[in-house]
Design a protein around this nucleic acid. Structure first.
Length: 421
RNA sequence: GUGAGCGUAGUUCAAUGGUUAGAGCACUGGAUUGUGGUUCCAGUUGUUGGGGGUUCGAGUCCCCUCGCUCACCCCA
């Protein structure tokens, strides 16, 4: 006989239970409330897409595509992939459903699990949840700023403060090559001083050298050219106005000319919101413009702006915040005897119909045990029903916080809580 | 993919290589009839992650393996 196998959730994936689940629910609710006021509506797309959608959208040479995708073949021989991010799906959906025929900008949000095969660490999971926001059809810097303001209000309303908004512009197809050329020229002189990773990046992905954390690399790039000094007129103007609108809308931000993105589709505006209270994975939101992606997926030339919020990281920050209140029963009905038990079941249904959380004890347990249980559940009030009460047509009540107690007519239960809250 | 740290009761943690692996918390029951929390008493729980080796003797040392955690990489 084999011993029973103990199953665990897959590596990097986890269960969410109370009390954490209340934080998640609050975030979902807040997101819906805030985003809908800015005209965002929900879009639901499959969790799985054809592999090519991601490899082409995110970039063949990115780490996500090269080594982090959950890719499999279905029984029809199609190569499918669990989505590692949401933007590619959103753009596919926009093009496939010809949403460009609707008035611009088209604004959508989505919410759900993403999958990346990485080594888990603090704030990083293989299945993680993102709230994604995408706006299609406007190239106005006012839109960029408006969405950052929306994000800020969402974060504030969720109870998160002290987050750092950092912005940058990485130019467009026209001006970025010039910058990269200038950067390579500058770094070429001190190539020996770069870390091994950066020497590799020098030819593979030079922009990423800008946000390397190695102290030698940080030192070496002190006099390096800045992207923002190499922007073309259009990008320069966009970036200026973006900042102007951010100030107008009172969004605090700082410039980070070393911030670049790991996905290929970004153009112009990029931004990141970080917290100092997380581990190494400190970005809670990141995104920016991707003016070329819709076209690349076969749609009309359509500018777009979007960002993704890492839900686990927000949840982690909210866990650290004081005063997370969890729901608790309004009333626990303790019963003595089988007759009282039946009566309690009926009374509970009446109270529940009015919206209260009501728990009912069992007559097989002693009154003492039922009270202990009510206490453990943090019930606000205990009702006690026994033979005495049944005969008198009354119910005894007790408030657990201060032991206040009394009696009420059984017919008047519905108004009990409303008079006391 | 690379590196480091850690795996002992439900949980948090003890146990100079030496008897039968312990404690707090939690849980269950009780302290005379129908009243919770505090207190007191009693009780339950272990293949020391798994496998192999060294040794008279391994929770402790060595090797392998699995898992967790953190960091790098990368990203939300």
């Amino acid at each position: 006989m084999c011993p029973a196998e103990k199953f665990r959730a897959p590596k990097g994936m986890r269960d969410v239970l109370p009390p954490d689940i209340y934080i998640w629910q609050k975030l979902e609710k807040t997101a819906f409330e805030v985003l809908s006021r800015y005209g965002f509506r929900e879009m639901r797309t499959p969790v799985v897409e054809s592999t090519a959608l991601f490899s082409r959208g995110i970039g063949e040479a990115t780490d996500i595509v090269e080594k982090e995708m959950y890719t499999f073949e279905d029984k029809g021989g199609r190569s499918l992939t669990l989505r590692p991010e949401g933007t590619a799906s959103a753009v596919r959906c926009y093009v496939e459903n010809q949403l460009y025929n609707l008035p611009s900008p088209q604004k959508y949000y989505y919410w759900g699990p993403m999958f990346r095969y990485e080594r888990p660490q603090a704030g990083r999971y293989r299945q993680f949840y993102q709230l994604g926001v995408e706006a299609f059809g406007s190239d106005s810097p006012a839109l960029d700023a408006e969405l950052l303001s929306m994000l800020r209000h969402f974060l504030l309303k969720s109870g998160l403060e002290g987050l750092n908004f950092q912005i940058n512009s990485i130019g467009c197809r026209a001006c970025r090559p010039d910058f990269i050329k200038a950067l390579l020229e500058y770094l070429g002189a001190g190539l020996e001083g770069l870390c091994a990773d950066c020497r590799r990046r020098y030819s593979a992905n030079p922009l990423r050298i800008l946000d390397c954390k190695a102290s030698g690399c940080q030192e070496l790039r002190k006099g390096a050219p800045r992207v923002t000094d190499h922007l073309c007129d259009g990008c320069h103007d966009h970036f200026d106005k973006f900042q102007h609108y951010l100030k107008l809308l009172d969004v605090p931000f700082s410039l980070n000319h070393e911030m670049v993105r790991g996905l290929d589709y970004y153009t112009r505006t990029t931004f990141e919101v970080t917290s100092e209270n997380l581990g190494a994975q400190n970005a809670v939101t990141a995104g920016g413009r991707y003016d070329g992606l819709v076209r690349e997926f076969g749609g009309p030339d359509t500018p777009a702006f979007g960002f993704a919020v890492g839900m686990e990281r927000l949840v982690e920050l909210l866990r650290q915040a004081p005063g997370q209140d969890v729901p608790r029963p309004g009333i626990f009905i303790a019963v003595i005897g089988e007759r009282a038990h039946s009566e309690a079941l009926l009374t509970a249904e009446v109270l529940r119909a009015d919206g209260s959380w009501v728990e009912v004890g069992e007559h097989t347990a002693s009154l003492k045990n039922q009270l202990r249980k009510a206490d453990r559940l943090s019930a606000e009030y205990v009702f006690i029903i026994g033979d005495e009460e049944l005969d008198a047509g009354s119910i005894k009540w007790k408030r657990l916080s201060d032991s206040a107690s009394g009696s009420l007519p059984a017919a008047g239960v519905r108004s009990f809580l409303s008079g006391r809250r």
